[in-house]
Structures are given as structure tokens and as C-alpha cells.
Nucleic acid binder design. Structure first.
Length: 503
RNA sequence: GCGCCCGUAGCUCAGUGGAAGAGCGGCGGCCUUCUAAGCCGCGGGUCGGAGGUUCGAAUCCUCCCGGGCGCACCA
């Protein structure tokens, strides 16, 4: 359903006889909207951009909802619109504003985190979850059917090492050199039972606290049981006693071992399970399988595509999202994260220190291609000044106004011309559908925190300049507050941050 | 050596063809009125470098420099 901005662009395009895209100038003195249509069209009609812009501007200025259209710079047309435009735009911001664009609706699986249950979730895995869950939330908001899955290796060499480390402690022996250490290992060694289920349940608890709810948990050992069914369907060969997948013939950079040779001869590698898992995902009816992987697994993307081709499946249904690492610092000192060495910072510790909201915010704040550096001391110490609280504060302020307004009428017309701050705020709200859509399409959730900050910024300015309660514009401004509150709440929810009523 | 990612203000980073930004840090103003976790102002830049494409490049292409990660049976 086109919104007010789309309709305005369409009307201008109709008047000019060409497609027009409206932009929001960064500098408000450049007008409410701007278009580069003259610069785009100038070459085709062999006219100078500025001259063409002059002609276009005159035609645009003649439109009903436009109050002025001026040429600027190399041929931009800066447009100002009438109050009626803002009122119409505000009026159509319902509860699902910005969402529901999915067409066709896809069944999507987002597989994320999937850390081996050899220890608590560390910060890099948390970024995986924060990123994947945010993409999942965006797709859900768009209208897609999304399932979140956690895949874990319960049978590989790392798990053997983990179990052996605990077994050694139970025998009163030191942990082997390549084993796992740390307080949690010693804690698990105190009991007699299998440490893996305990670790898994602890991970699930951490994830729920982190506001990620998994719909399903898949075991590597279960998938391996179906290996015999799929190995014959693959393009393989034997070499040095091992069974190899000829993935290099299907777009991968190299071939990979599926079944080991030597001492562990006959044992499958994790890549063998990958094959079963890929088919399993698509068999379950997902139109799209999204894998969220750390940058150290970037080569895996080609592997997945290669096995899809090898099996005659559409590689376009498989999507790999990569993210860079997280560096934690304490007072400027970097902390090296190694689970086995036991000197890591766990997600639970970070949430204890800076809170769940700030943790989620920081982990999707930056683009996935960007390494993140978080100084925990700074994050804890300056928590009052974190952008996340700045945004939440705007929400809480609005909640306070609405509380104080009690059951007063909202959404009435303004008694006079709109204030600059009211227009700026409404324009920012019209950016929301575009931002959400772009964040979803680009798998770039970092656009949301940036947007939320700008929105909060516009609201705080509005709040400072425009009295709501007791003002003749009360009814209208209450409606504006309500719409703003809703969009802030939605922006925060999409990144997994709460929108408090009071602070 | 090959592949992927990054290089924008003192620091951490937004900005994926259109008019260079935010937060933190520094300096200075604003609370008898809906939450001052707020608002306003000041200072701060060869967008790593060199070419190219384009009316227009932080953005796209090539090369170079610097940093991170990966490169055959651990995941």
C-alpha cells in the first residue's frame, strides 16, 4: 500500500512524465523533499540539468500539495509541501505502520548462534544471535514466516575434548593441554552426570534472557544418521583413504573431506553433516535457509552453494550472512577470547554489567562487516549516556505525557499552521517504512539504531519547543506523540530492546 | 602466495552514485510549566593513497599501502 510520500512522488512523476524518486535532504533548509530527476533526465534530452530543473520546478510548484519548488546546486529540485500533506501522512500511521510488505510471503529459517555446547555463550556468538534475530524480526515484520533454529555439534572432536576435560577433573587429574578450562568446567566436574545437556540448558537460558527464542534445536549426531542416504547422491572420490566431495567442480575453491581416513577412518567430518542438514532444511519446506556465520567461516558460503548445486537444489535458496568479530576491552586493555583457555567474557557477564538492552543495542549498532569494539568499563560507567537510553528516554517521556493526558481526545486537527518541529518529526516518521525495508533487504539491522536516534532527536526537539498538554494543539499533538511512541517502540523491538513506560 | 572483510573528526563508528554526519571526549549557555537520562551554541576532516568510470564518487572499477580473518580430514 503506497504511503503519502509514494503518492506525492507518483503525482510529481505524472506531472513531469517521468519516474521520480523523492529524497529527504539532510539539511532542512533544503526543503521537505528533494529530487534529482532533472540531473538524471538531462542527458537523454540533451539539455543542461539546471535548465531542465527550472522547467520541472515550475511544474512541480503548480501542484496542489506543493508550496514551493526551487532549483539548487547542480540541478536538485528542493520541494516544500503544505500542512495537508503532513496531516495525511500522519493519519495513515496505523499500528502496523512500516510492516507487511512481504510479497510473496516466504517461509524462512534463520539458523544462528549454533555454538558448540562446550561452554557458555561468548560475545562473538552473541553477535551472531543479535544479528540473526534482528534479521528474523525484520522479516517477520515484513510478513514472512520465520523459524529460528540452533544447530549444535554433540559428537565431534571438540565435544570429545570437552567431555575428556571434565572426566579428567573428576578423576582428580589435570585438564589435558588441548582441553577446556575455567570455573564452569570445574563446576560441571562436581556432578557425575553428562555435562552436555546441562550446558545446553544453560545456553537456552542465556538465549532467552538475551531475548532470542529458538523454535527448534538440531543435533549433528541425528543428522549423521541419514548420511548413507545422501552420500551416493554426491559427487565424491576417494583419495589418501578419505572420501572427498568434489566441491571445486561446483563453484567452491576446493574439495573437502567428508569421511576421514586413518585412525578415525569412517568417521564423518562436520561437512558431511552439512550436506544432510542442507537437504533437511529445504525438505522441511523452507523457501529460504539463512545461515549466520562468523567471519572465520566466510569460506563456508561457497561450500553450501556448491553442495546445493551438487544435489540439484537451487543455491539461491541458501543464504549466508557473515559478521565480523567483537573485541572487548576493559579500560583500554584488550581481552583475548578463547573458550579453552578460560579467560573469556561470557554474554551473561556482559548482560550483568551493562544490561540486556545495551548489550543487544551495541551488537547490532554496527554493520555486520564492521568489527565491533566495546569497552566494558566505558559501557558500564557511561550507561546513562548510551544512545540506547537516549532513545528509550524519548519513549518514556511520551508515555508520561499520555499518562498525564488520561483519556483526553487525540488525533484532532491542529488549530493553526504546523510548527517546524512538528513537520520535522512527521517527516522523520515517514522515513520509517523506507528504513525498515532497506534494513531488511540489505540484512543491515544497524540502520534501525541510527534511525531511532534521529527520531528521538526530532522528538526531544519537538518536546522542547511544543507544549502538548493544555495547548490549543493538544489533541493534534497527542496524536503525533502516539504515532512517535509507536514507531520508537517498533524500532526498539526490531533490535530486541525494550521500550520502557518510565525511566 | 590466494580468498573474504575493513580503513570517514582525538576515540568508537553511521553514511552501498547526489548538498560530508552521530555518539563519546573538550569548551560555553538553558530547569517555579508535560521526565534536564533533555535542549541550544562553539571547536574539530587531504573520507588510507593513486588512477579510472560519471554531469556528479566516501560510495562503483583497477592498482598500491595498512589492519583483521580464512586457506584439505577441529567446528
Amino acid at each position: 500500500m503506497p504511503n503519502a510520500v509514494d503518492r506525492l512522488a507518483a503525482r510529481i512523476g505524472e506531472a513531469l512524465g517521468t519516474e521520480v524518486r523523492l529524497e529527504r535532504p539532510k539539511d532542512p533548509s533544503h526543503g521537505d523533499f528533494a529530487t534529482n530527476v532533472a540531473m538524471r533526465s538531462a542527458k537523454a534530452v540533451e539539455r543542461s540539468p539546471r535548465e531542465l530543473a527550472q522547467q520541472f520546478a515550475q511544474e512541480i510548484a503548480g501542484l496542489e500539495e506543493v508550496t514551493s519548488a526551487e532549483v539548487a546546486g547542480p540541478g536538485f529540485i528542493n520541494i516544500r509541501v503544505a500542512d495537508a500533506f503532513f496531516l495525511a501522512a500522519l493519519a495513515e500511521m496505523g499500528p502496523e505502520y512500516g510492516g507487511g510488505w512481504a510479497d510473496p510471503v516466504e517461509r524462512v529459517q534463520v539458523e544462528m548462534v549454533s555454538a558448540n555446547p562446550t561452554g557458555p555463550i561468548v560475545v562473538s556468538a552473541a553477535r551472531n544471535g543479535a544479528y540473526g534475530d534482528c534479521v528474523a524480526r525484520l522479516l517477520e515484520f515484513g510478513g514472512h514466516e520465520v523459524a529460528r533454529e540452533y544447530y549444535y555439534n554433540d559428537a565431534g572432536a571438540q565435544m570429545d575434548r570437552f567431555r575428556e576435560s571434565i572426566a579428567a577433573l573428576r578423576r582428580g587429574e589435570p585438564v589435558p593441554g588441548d582441553g577446556y578450562r575455567g570455573a564452569y568446567v570445574e563446576e560441571l566436574a562436581k556432578a557425575d552426570d553428562d555435562p552436555v545437556p546441562k550446558m545446553l540448558s544453560s545456553i537456552e537460558h542465556t538465549m532467552e534472557r538475551f531475548r532470542i527464542h529458538f523454535d527448534s534445536w538440531v543435533l549433528q549426531s541425528k543428522l549423521e544418521q541419514r548420511l548413507d542416504e545422501f552420500l551416493p547422491k554426491l559427487d565424491t572420490y576417494e583419495q589418501d583413504g578419505a572420501l572427498w566431495a568434489r566441491s571445486s567442480a561446483y563453484g567452491d575453491e576446493q574439495d573437502w573431506v567428508l569421511i576421514r581416513s586413518g585412525e578415525k577412518g569412517g568417521a564423518p567430518t562436520y561437512r558431511a553433516a552439512d550436506v544432510v542438514y542442507l537437504v533437511d532444511k529445504l525438505e522441511r519446506g523452507f523457501d529460504r535457509a539463512i545461515y549466520v556465520l562468523g567471519a572465520d567461516h566466510h569460506a563456508t558460503a561457497r561450500w553450501y552453494a556448491a553442495i546445493a548445486r551438487m544435489l540439484g537444489l537451487d543455491p539461491g535458496r541458501v543464504e549466508v550472512l557473515l559478521y565480523q568479530f567483537v573485541h572487548l576491552t576493559r579500560g583500554g586493555e584488550s581481552t583475548k577470547a578463547s573458550k579453552r583457555a578460560g579467560n573469556v567474557v561470557f554474554l551473561d557477564d556482559v548482560m550483568d554489567e551493562i544490561g540486556v538492552d545495551a548489550t543487544r543495542w551495541y551488537l547490532v549498532n554496527r554493520g555486520p562487516d564492521q568489527t565491533i569494539e566495546i569497552d566494558l568499563d566505558l559501557a558500564a560507567e557511561k550507561s546513562q549516556k548510551n544512545p540506547v537510553y537516549y532513545v528509550q528516554y524519548a519513549h518514556a517521556r511520551i508515555a508520561a505525557i499520555l499518562r498525564n493526558a488520561e483519556s483526553a481526545e487525540t488525533g484532532g486537527p491542529p488549530p493553526g499552521p504546523l510548527a517546524t518541529e512538528e513537520k520535522e518529526l512527521i517527516k522523520r516518521l515517514t522515513d520509517f517504512p523506507v528504513t525498515v525495508r532497506e534494513a531488511a533487504d540489505r540484512r543491515g539491522p544497524q540502520l534501525l539504531p541510527s534511525y531511532a536516534i534521529r527520531l528521538a532527536d526530532d522528538f526531544h526537539r519537538f518536546y522542547h519547543e511544543c507544549r502538548v498538554l493544555g495547548d490549543p494543539a493538544q489533541s493534534f499533538r497527542l496524536g503525533l506523540c502516539r504515532a512517535t511512541q509507536q514507531v520508537i517502540a517498533r524500532s526498539l523491538d526490531l533490535v530486541g530492546v525494550e521500550a520502557p513506560e518510565r525511566m
